[in-house]
Structures are given as C-alpha cells and as structure tokens.
Design a protein around this nucleic acid. Sequence first.
DNA 1: ATGGCGGCTCGCAGCCGA
Length: 253
Amino acid sequence: MKLVTWNVNSLKVRLPQVLEWLTAHQPDVLCLQETKLEDVNFPVAEISAAGYQVVFCGQKTYNGVAILSKTPALDVVTAIPGYVDPQKRVLAATISGVRIINLYIPNGQSVDSDKFQYKLGWLEAMTTWLTDELARNPSLALLGDFNIAPDERDVHDPKAWEGQVLFSLPEREAFRRLVDLGLADSFRLFDQPEKIYSWWDYRMNAFRRNMGLRIDHILLSPALTETCKSCVIDKEARKAERPSDHAPVIVEF
DNA sequence: ATGGCGGCTCGCAGCCGA
C-alpha cells in the first residue's frame, strides 16, 4: 500500500494541486488535513473523476480532514469517542484491511496559552483511544499533521526552538508515549539525508533557506513496520505555485 | 524568526496557523 499524509492548508485553493499530485503519484490512500471546508462544499465530484472514493469531516474556516482511497473506507469514525470537541480533527477508516487514523493535532499556539493545554489534553484523549484501536487492529497507521517535531534532527535550529511550541518537552513526551505503544516513526526506519523537513513557514524565505520542521508523521503498528519498504517526504510539492506550507509524506508497505 | 506569508471571514482589518 502507498499511503500519504498532506496538510493542504485549504482544499478549495489546493484542489488542482491535489488532483495533479494524485495523477502523478497514484497513492492507494491520501489523507488530508486543514481542508477548511464544510461537508456540503466538499469537492466529491472532482475527486471521483480522478478515480478516488472519499470520506470527510470538516467545518468552516478551520481544521477539517479527509481520506481519499481507491478502495472503500469502512468503519468510519469522525471523532475521538467520548471526547467532546467541536473542532474537526479526526477521521479513521479501515481500507484494504488497514486501520487508517488521520489526525490534525492542535497547534498549541504557544506553551503558555490555553490552546497549549487543549493540545496536551487532546493528545492524552487520543492516545487512550488509540490504545483501544491498536488492540482491535493489528495493521494500523496513525498519520497526519502532528504539530510536534520529535527530536533535534527534525528542527532546523534546535537551540532556537528548544522549549517553544512544536518542540517543547511535554509535546515530545506525548509523541514518545505514542511510540511506546509499539508504533514506529516510519521516516526513521530508514537512512535519511540530514535536514529533511515537512513544513516551512511562508515568511522569511523559510523554504528557500530550508528553515523547516518535520511535524507531519506516519506511525506504523508492528505488523506494518515489518513490511514497510520506504518513507519519503515530497519536497517538490512545496515548490509549486501557491503551495501549501506542508509537503506530503509518503510511506509504502 | 516572532515582522515580513497566506487563508479565512458576510473583510476592506484582524484572527489564526506553525
């Protein structure tokens, strides 16, 4: 299976790029975040025409997630069970026997903000739910925009980012707790070049200067880790005209 | 780095993202 995560920062703006990317790369499953679309406005027809089925869960202006796939999405879940949250950040489905959990984890804004506490509480609730999902689904992929850089290699300037949101200790510990459930960061299963990131700020020529963070991840259960062949980040997509600030992450197993 | 970008909203400036 070729499985991809991509924060598109508005599917309305990025739809032509997504369709072009699908044609060029032909993934089995493409998980999107930050669609920023109410369900009634979701571009089902255009995606169907490209040969993909789609499930989605969105809202106006912020958040929103979707899963595009060549085969049907079964047992769809659109929220963390038992966790009250008006923000649409979760979409899970079983596709070709693989449990796919697509996340848009909260940004957190800054470590001293209420949004940071929301992020930590959200991560705790999601991790509890995941324990249950893992028990029932040996073949599981947890992927999306985590808004967490797991270690120094994932940050262009670790000294400057130390303690800042996206790279603070509580966030990295929350990420570690997911790994400790038996999940593998698929990107680190392989030798990778240095200074590979998945997000670059639109400002300050950050992309040209490669001032990025690796905050988009694909975590795999042991059964999928065993058969995982590759994990790469498609930096080319970030070079497009009017790009998303995130690049797609691609795993094959 | 904290501005500078870019997307959104019944906009014409401010919020949010990361």
